[in-house]
């Protein structure tokens, strides 16, 4: 079952930028894209770079460390890796009443 957690005001994530929200031990990179808010784990599968600090183009973010590109919808790495990197974990995000909400699996949240 999905629970929705209030993360932050939409104003804290300016258009075409990312911000880090700390959820327990997990850092979540929340992005304000042209197609709405999206969230992935704030860790590039390459060198652990902070994806939230990357430049956003459409619905893709580029890791600031070595320019790996990650699709924010699917979590797939779209550029940079030679032989297929594991996708980045994605999270469901919605905006309700000006608040960015994060959808977490109840079991995961408990863990």
């Amino acid at each position: 079952m999905t629970r929705w957690i209030k993360l932050t005001h939409v104003d804290n994530v300016p258009p075409r930028e990312g911000r880090v929200v700390r959820l327990g031990t997990t850092q979540i990179a929340v992005f304000n894209t042209e197609q709405g808010f999206m969230a992935v784990e704030n860790r590039c599968p390459h060198g652990g770079g902070p994806l939230a600090d990357g430049i956003v183009g459409g619905t893709t973010v580029t890791c600031p460390l070595h320019n790996w590109r990650v699709c924010l919808k699917s979590g797939e790495v779209t550029k940079g890796c030679a032989d297929g990197a594991p996708p980045v974990r994605t999270f469901a995000v919605e905006v309700r009443n000006g608040i960015v909400m994060l959808g977490v699996n109840a079991a995961e949240a408990a863990a």
Partner: peptide
């Protein structure tokens, strides 16, 4: 929120 890590408005 340029420099900080955002704390969620509610705790999971």
């Amino acid at each position: 929120a340029q420099f900080i890590q955002i704390e969620p408005l509610e705790v999971a």
